[in-house]
Amino acid sequence: MKDDADRFLPLTPATLHILLALAGDDLHGYAIMQEVRRQSENKYRLGPGTLYDNLQRLVDQGLVREVSRSAKNADGDDSRRRYYRINTLGRRVLSAEVARLEGVVREAKLRIPLPETRRT
């Protein structure tokens, strides 16, 4: 199981942020973009081309799957919008990536002084 997730590591920044955004709830494309911007405090922005290219790869790799859900638009009309949901394998890959990054941060703290992070 662990080896199954490790073969996807390391993740690209775009893939990491997309999986992190989907870890909370099923989201459509534009919502993923907004969630990524919020999580990175506006430091990392995804364009639609980059977003859907990564989503296509994640779907092909089995980390994410598409779900169809109706949603009301601003005019109150129902519109079929493509939502994305993270799979079990995707959660394991995300956990493995976070663990890897924790090890990197731990090593970094031992060697170089890091600035204090502001908690919001």
């Binding site: 364009g47 639609p48 081309g49 290219d53």
Partner: peptide, 14 residues
């Protein structure tokens, strides 16, 4: 304009 620029990058990547 940023979205259009991302479109160019996406086109090249594809």
């Amino acid at each position: 304009v940023a979205v259009v620029g991302d479109g160019f990058v996406s086109l090249a990547r594809q």
